[in-house]
Design a protein around this nucleic acid. Structure first.
Length: 138
DNA sequence: GCCAACGTTGGC
DNA sequence: GCCAACGTTGGC
């Protein structure tokens, strides 16, 4: 099963808002990048993703689950991009900061480190486990 | 607030 | 189809 990382600015969509949406979840829209779109399309129902706060916080704060696979984003007037639905699974016991990730040699190849601007990223199984470990969830 | 990295746009 | 200019993102 594949794992992912979804990035959001807390000022536009925060973990607290995601958690407040509960088991019903919400759509994850606003992706306007072709590589991010490709990743969105590869997501399958039931797969999990890290929820990352960019800018002020710069940390992975929680885990979400894909509840609906890729479908068209009707707010995109160019009709090129779509979105998935996600629901909050749990907040991490300890958020894992970008500084911690950069300080962990085993995570040197994470997309977050090498292509920080990509808003939807794949995470390998090994990376997933290491981050969980760092979050006190292992 | 600055700036590097990257994606997109548009002229040719 | 190439590439310079420009805008945006996001770390610092």
């Amino acid at each position: 099963m594949a794992h992912w990382l979804l990035k959001s600015e807390p000022s536009s969509w925060s973990w607290d808002q995601q958690a407040a949406a509960g088991a019903k979840g919400t759509f994850w829209n606003g992706v306007r990048n072709h590589l991010a779109k490709k990743h969105l399309m590869a997501m399958r129902k039931g797969e999990r993703a890290f929820f990352y706060h960019s800018n002020e916080e710069r940390a992975i704060v929680g885990i979400v689950e894909i509840t609906k696979e890729y479908y068209p984003d009707h707010t995109d007037e160019t009709a090129k991009f779509g979105m998935v639905d996600v629901k909050a699974v749990k907040a991490l016991k300890k958020p894992v900061t970008l500084a911690q990730i950069k300080g962990e040699p085993r995570l040197a190849d994470m997309v977050l480190v090498n292509n920080s601007r990509l808003s939807v990223q794949p995470v390998t199984d090994v990376e997933w486990e290491i981050v969980l470990e760092m979050a006190g969830e292992a």
